[in-house]
Computed example of a mutant assay.
Amino acid sequence: MNPTAQVPAVVLRRPGVLFTVVRVFAGVLLLATGLSGLSVVLGFASLFPVAPVEFMHLMIGSGFLAPAKGMETVAGLLLLFNRYPRLALALEAPVALNVLLFHLCFDRANLWMGVVLLSLVAVLAWPHRQFYAGWLRQLLTR
């Protein structure tokens, strides 16, 4: 039996200009917000306004913010330079969901930020959905 017969054929087309613009925009956005969060962890002022300051202090004190913002920064760099975009999106999807939930629960005035970020991740992940299907199947059949 031919070992390549079991692997589904994947045809990747060259991304269009609009898709590239979305990828670069998402990369810049993630890089900026990730670096802003890391600056807060290091004790500097945030580059962007943060509404629920008490919650941010709780996240910093718990040690949650540093790895989350580190992943956001790495994902932003990977998307910006178009290196391992599937990995970048896999790292960013849970962070984007957390951003949406954060704004939904604590900062409804800026809920649009979470919606935009999660939408960008979804748009960028859609062409790669066949690569994420195996992960999702394993999670859903456990």
Rank of each mutant, 00 (worst) to 15 (best):
V22K: 00
S46Q: 05
V99E: 00
A45G: 13
L111S: 04
S36A: 10
W135D: 12
V41I: 02
F81M: 08
N98W: 05
P52L: 10
W112A: 12
F25P: 00
R142S: 08
V22D: 03
L87R: 08
G16A: 11
T141P: 04
L101T: 07
R86C: 03
Q138S: 10
L47H: 11
C105N: 10
D107T: 06
V41H: 01
N82V: 13
L31E: 05
E72W: 05
N82Y: 11
R86P: 01
F25Q: 03
E92Y: 05
F55L: 15
L29D: 12
A75N: 01
V53K: 04
L111H: 00
R137D: 11
A51F: 13
R129E: 08
A26M: 10
W135H: 07
M1K: 04
F19M: 03
S39I: 10
M113W: 06
G70C: 10
V10F: 14
R142L: 13
P3D: 06
P52H: 07
F25D: 00
L80M: 13
R13S: 14
V50Y: 03
A88T: 03
K69N: 05
V123M: 14
G134V: 09
W135L: 14
A96N: 08
K69V: 11
A93R: 12
V74E: 00
H57F: 04
V123K: 08
A45R: 15
G16D: 07
L97E: 02
Y84D: 02
V40Q: 03
P8S: 11
G43H: 03
L79R: 03
L58T: 13
A122H: 09
A68L: 10
P85I: 06
V7T: 12
A133I: 10
S119Y: 03
L47F: 05
M59D: 07
L65F: 11
N82T: 13
L136F: 04
M56F: 09
A109R: 14
V21M: 10
P67S: 06
N82F: 14
G16C: 09
T20N: 07
G114R: 02
W126S: 08
H103V: 12
Q138K: 13
A90Y: 09
A122M: 12
A109C: 07
L65E: 08
T33M: 04
G70V: 04
L101D: 10
V115T: 06
L77G: 05
Q138C: 07
P15F: 10
L139H: 11
M71T: 02
R108M: 13
L58R: 07
M59R: 04
V10D: 01
R23C: 11
Q6K: 14
L65W: 05
F55W: 12
N98V: 14
P3T: 08
N2Y: 05
F44S: 15
L29W: 15
P15D: 03
G16K: 06
P8A: 08
R86T: 13
S36L: 09
L29Q: 12
V121K: 01
L77M: 13
P49D: 15
T141N: 03
A90D: 04
F48Y: 12
A96R: 04
M56K: 01
L79V: 12
M71Q: 09
M56N: 06
A5W: 07
T20R: 04
L18N: 05
W112M: 02
V123Y: 06
V53T: 15
L80R: 00
C105M: 11
H128N: 14
M113P: 00
M1A: 11
S62Q: 07
V41M: 06
T20C: 04
T4I: 13
L58Y: 15
L120S: 00
L47P: 01
